[in-house]
Amino acid sequence: MNFSKELKTGVLIVCTIALGIYGLNYLKGYDLFSTSDEYYAIYPDANGLLESNPILINGMHVGKIQRINFVDDNSGRVIVKFILTNTEFKIPNDSRALMASLDLLGAKGIRIMPGTSATYLQDGDTLATGTEDGMVDRLSKELIPTKQKAEHLISSIDSTLQQLNKVLNGGGSASLQQILINLSKTTSDVNDLLASEKTRLNHIFANAESITLNLRNNQDNLTAIMKNAALMTDSLAKSNLKSTIANADKSLAELTKTLNQINSGKGTLGKLIKDDTLYNNLNTSAKDLDKLFIDIKEHPSRYVNFSIFGGKKESK
């Protein structure tokens, strides 16, 4: 069968126009070849709801929004016309059509909360409406106080930084630099010291280690010592220390009295210390004795008379 070129062209044009109209309507959310029920819902605010957004019943996708218009009464409310392609579930007439956020990107949809009534909605009916807080709505509700707090925080950080800037600009910077230079010098000195005294430090640590080791080894002994000390202090505490001290105190008072008497030159001891008569007498006696001894040395014969060969002179 041979088609004329005109016929082929005509067929192409008509088919394409039909295809284009069907495709455009499909993309806009109308499916020309499927039967569906239409329902309406009236909201005070469309709130990002778009044509072809989904209609869900218990999470099941049953239809889409076909058109959103203002209500005729110029109240600013919007009437949403939506079609249900899946009509297996009959919607009770006390169901509510809740506007809901479906995902994180903020895609909206209508969630139909089925009621319990035994009578069902008919094609073309209008549903009761409501809104459901989506994740984003909830987040933004919680976010606003947090944001205010963050603003406070940021402003206080800002003022702090301004103060810091003031300090740094008013010569604080130079001081800080000086401090850092000093610190660097100090640390390098410490480094030098550590390097030069490394062996000694090592010794010190070794000694300390051995000391602690000894301490640990002698732990039992130390415990015994401590016990003894405790015992001693115990017995000290128990002993009649107070009266002893009181007696000692009394004795010392007596002693002081005696010493005072001695100092004032009373009694024998006092005379001995304060009166130099005895000393003078003794001194004179010693001088005399000295003279006597000198005399004896020079003239022994005056006092000692002896003869190896017998006593002739005595007889004289």
């Binding site: 284009g20 959310g29 072809s52 989904p54 996708h61 889409k64 895609a107």
Partner: peptide
């Protein structure tokens, strides 16, 4: 479902 939802999502006729 996702593909069809996607191609009908926020469709602008002017693009065509």
């Amino acid at each position: 479902y996702e593909y069809i939802y996607g191609i009908t999502h926020n469709f602008k006729v002017f693009n065509v």
